[in-house]
């Protein structure tokens, strides 16, 4: 791919790797896949990143399929290694919930949700470790022009999950505190009833900052990591010396990234639990 466009290789290569396979309304009015980054951008909101959605859903299905099969073949006496691993994940999700939520705030949904978040985000991040050219090249060979395989480097995916978390925050805030209690919490803090407008602005910004920071943190980390993988991959076409250096760099970055992808998945899970536990608290 790098050698296709002569002098434009660098920018073209990076652009290609950062463009999603977008389905939407083309400039001529018909529906189809965008043929480039500009065309994808011009589709506006009524378009969908087919690659992000497909990979995200596929990874989710694989994740649940593995867990279901482990649960079905559960063995008390002779647990398989996969079972031990899955059990550890379940324990971690439950422990994270228990350590954050107070005893009174009973909610059976939090721990399964924490598990879903951690494993799913981890799987989506894990795609980052697949060498950046393998699957896009394969897709190009099969006639698909664009293929971004790491769903969490798509801002829509990260913010989409954050949006779901935000919906849950609102739902539980209203359910637990009631509309009046929730409004009071927004209006009367932190400066008392004489500064209600100021309080409202402050609290609403804080409220909106939760999902935004949650989603953008994941997106930013993964996007930056992916970009560096792409930059490293460009070294392979720049002669033997740089190519070898690129191999070393990719190995090092990938090893470091194992930490990053796990940490980001964990942070996303933990922050979600914390936000929802705040939504459960009475003031």
């Amino acid at each position: 791919m790098a050698s296709e466009n002569g002098e434009l290789t660098g920018a073209g290569y990076i652009n290609h790797h950062l463009t999603n396979l977008t389905y939407g309304q083309l400039p001529d009015g018909s529906w189809g896949f965008a043929h480039g980054a500009e065309e994808a951008a011009s589709m506006g909101f009524m378009a969908i990143h087919v690659d992000s959605m497909a990979w995200a859903l596929a990874l989710g299905v694989i994740m649940f399929w593995v867990m279901r099969s482990v649960a079905k073949n559960f063995s008390s006496d002779k647990p398989s290694k996969v079972q031990c691993f899955v059990e550890a994940l379940f324990d971690m999700a439950q422990d994270s919930k228990d350590s954050t939520f107070t005893k009174q705030a009973k909610n059976e949904w939090i721990a399964p949700m924490a598990l879903t978040i951690f494993v799913w985000v981890f799987f989506m991040n894990l795609m980052d470790l697949v060498p950046v050219d393998w699957i896009p090249e394969l897709a190009a060979f099969l006639g698909v022009g664009y293929m971004k395989i790491v769903p969490s480097t798509d801002v829509n995916v990260a913010l989409g999950m954050a949006l779901a978390v935000f919906i849950m925050i609102l739902y539980y805030s209203l359910k637990i505190k009631g509309p009046v209690g929730f409004t009071k919490e927004l209006a009367l803090q932190p400066f008392g009833k004489y500064l209600i407008p100021f309080n409202l602005v402050l609290e609403l910004v804080g409220l909106l900052a939760k999902p935004l920071s949650l989603g953008l943190r994941l997106f930013g980390n993964m996007y930056a990591g992916e970009l560096i993988f792409i930059l490293i991959a460009m070294m392979y076409s720049a002669g033997l010396g740089l190519g070898v250096l690129g191999g070393v760099a990719q190995l090092g970055w990938a090893i470091f990234h194992i930490l990053v992808i796990t940490l980001q998945a964990y942070i996303f899970m933990m922050l979600t639990i914390v936000y929802l536990s705040q939504a459960h608290e009475h003031h």
Partner: peptide, 19 residues
Amino acid sequence: MNINLTLIGQTISFLLFVW
């Protein structure tokens, strides 16, 4: 970096997965 329907799709998928 385009915000589009993927956002909604991901939100729905996520809620479905949690369920």
